[in-house]
C-alpha cells in the first residue's frame, strides 16, 4: 500500500476506533485484550493509538475504569459510561447516515 492510501485509510478509520471501543467496552475489559479483539474483528488499531485513546476517553467521562488486582499483574478494566453509551448511539446513527449517503452516491441517485 502506498503512503497516500495509507494516510487516507488512517484518516477514515480514526473515528471508528472510538466507536469500536465504546461499543466493545459495554463488557469491561483491559487494554491488551481490547486491542486484540478489535483487531481480530477487523477494526485495525495499534497500541500507540489505543492506550492514549483509552486514557482520553476516561478523562472525558465516556469510560469508567477499575483496577483488577486478582491476578499477578494488576490490570485496569475499562467500561463504557452512560455518557459513552449516548455518544456511541450518536456516532452509530451518523455512521449509518454516511453509509446510506455513500450508497446513494455510488448508485447514482444522488446526482
Amino acid at each position: 500500500m502506498d503512503a497516500t492510501t495509507a494516510s487516507h485509510l488512517q484518516e477514515l478509520r480514526r473515528g471508528t476506533v472510538v466507536l469500536g471501543c465504546l461499543v466493545r467496552l459495554r463488557e469491561p475489559d483491559y487494554g491488551y485484550a481490547l486491542l486484540e479483539s478489535l483487531n481480530r474483528i477487523g477494526i485495525t488499531v495499534d497500541a500507540n493509538t489505543l492506550y492514549p485513546l483509552l486514557r482520553r476517553l476516561e478523562k472525558q467521562g465516556l469510560l469508567t475504569s477499575e483496577w483488577n488486582t486478582d491476578e499477578a499483574r494488576p490490570r485496569k478494566f475499562y467500561r463504557t459510561s452512560p455518557a459513552g453509551e449516548q455518544l456511541a448511539g450518536v456516532l452509530t446513527a451518523d455512521w449509518k447516515h454516511i453509509d446510506r449517503a455513500l450508497a446513494r452516491l455510488t448508485s447514482g441517485e444522488g446526482s
Partner: peptide
Amino acid sequence: GRELRERIGDEVDA
C-alpha cells in the same frame, strides 16, 4: 506507571 507496566507486561507476554 501502573498503566504503563500493565501494557509492557501484556506485550512482553504476547
